[in-house]
Amino acid sequence: MAVQEIKGDEYVIEHNDSSHVVGFKGTIRLQTTDDYAPITDLLQKAHGAAGKGKLTLDFRQLQFLNSSGINAISKFVIAARKEDKVSMVVLGSQDIYWQQKSLSNLSKLWSKVQVDIV
């Protein structure tokens, strides 16, 4: 098992390449699209590693994400839709308000995305 990690001042993102889970923790409110590039790269690697299997994006410990971040994640979902290889599961938390409000938008971008708010 290998875990690839991106760490910022207020967040950690981990990709576990055996369980094919990308976990987001903390608060991600970066300034520019370029600032989001390492995160997008990690997501693309995770997508490649998942092959035709399941890829899970776990947001249950992500307190905040700004609109630039929502844009970056949405862009990744659209790219995955175009390739149509993985089955994608998005995990959110009932205790985190923005996730109740906005996370289900991802399944409207791609109907195969399963959003579970638990």
């Binding site: 699209t33 844009n71 949405s74 862009k75 659209i78 790219a79 938008n105 409207k108 971008l109």
Partner: peptide
């Protein structure tokens, strides 16, 4: 909202 996301996926 969804139109913008689709557009942004093509061009930043």
């Amino acid at each position: 909202y969804f139109k913008r996301l689709e557009e942004n996926a093509e061009t930043d």
